[in-house]
């Protein structure tokens, strides 16, 4: 009998520390499925961020480097410059990427660093217990926004659309936003990851896949409610799709189609 669905080889068969319904685990699986399909397990290095996914290195069966909170793109820059033939994954949460590490992601993207950022946007600080993130939606409650995020009255500012912010930079070549709240979105997200990883291995510049991800624990929801909330509240603000695609591979595909 042919095995059509199994556990990815590069993901260790152990139980994760993530809460039930958490998006991180699904995203780990997508990453490792792509790595297996590309056959690059022994050429992959992950930079696991300070955040709930700090333990990602326990689950991935390849090398890892762990730098301070927010400095993930700087660390990934160092790794990738020394190991240009490796798949370097810069895994980041929204606090890591869009608050404490804003400078690092902007400049890594602008330099066109040839690694891929997997940006897990769960609109909250998961690990530290549900504080407001730069991506927390207007009105969304957090321990540090007890009455909901109030951009003007309480001076909490607005949720940041990271893909759109990085789109203007010359060094960013591929920016896509997916979600893991249902099977269709999950499948599409996997395609984005594959496209980004392949572009990286061709040396095409900065690539990032933002993934809207559930944090039922800190959203105060049941897992099922949380996937519905991604659909009802997050996706209308954070539009899914390929926000920027300047990959040479894609340009060739367009040329081919136009022939």
């Amino acid at each position: 009998m042919e095995l059509t669905y199994g556990h990815p080889k590069s993901l260790l068969p152990i139980q994760t520390k993530y809460c039930p319904g958490c998006g991180h685990g699904v995203i780990h699986r997508l990453i490792t499925e792509v790595i297996d399909e590309m056959g690059v397990q022994d050429h992959s290095i992950i930079l696991n961020p300070v955040g709930c996914s700090i333990w990602a290195s326990l689950y991935f069966d390849f090398d890892s480097v762990q730098v301070p909170h927010g400095r993930t793109p700087a660390g990934a820059t160092g790794v990738k410059r020394m190991k240009p033939d490796h798949l370097v994954i810069c895994y980041q949460g929204d606090g890591d990427l869009a608050a404490i590490g804003t400078a690092e992601i902007v400049h890594a993207a602008n330099r066109g660093e040839k690694f891929t950022t997997i940006f897990v946007n769960n609109a909250i600080y998961g690990m530290t217990g549900g504080q407001m993130a730069p991506t927390t939606l207007v009105g969304q409650k957090a321990t540090t926004a007890p009455y909901g995020r109030d951009p003007i009255g309480a001076g909490m500012g607005y949720p940041i659309r990271v893909c759109e912010m990085l789109e203007t930079l010359g060094g960013s070549k591929y920016l896509a936003r997916g979600a893991v709240n249902n099977a269709a979105n999950t499948r599409k997200t996997k395609q984005y990851i594959r496209k980004a990883f392949e572009a990286q291995m061709r040396g095409e510049g900065f690539t990032m896949v933002e993934i809207l991800s559930q944090c039922p624990t800190n959203w105060g929801m049941e897992p099922v409610e949380s996937v519905e909330w991604v659909e009802s509240d997050m996706i209308p603000f954070y539009k899914l799709g390929e926000i920027k695609d300047e990959l040479a591979g894609s340009a060739n595909a367009v040329k081919e189609a136009g022939k």
Binding site: V65, R71, A74, G75, G78
Partner: peptide
Amino acid sequence: IQAESEVAAINMVFGAGAT
């Protein structure tokens, strides 16, 4: 690399040193 800050520079050092 002329980094965007000393913070970035030392973490680039860390990443490259890790290899």
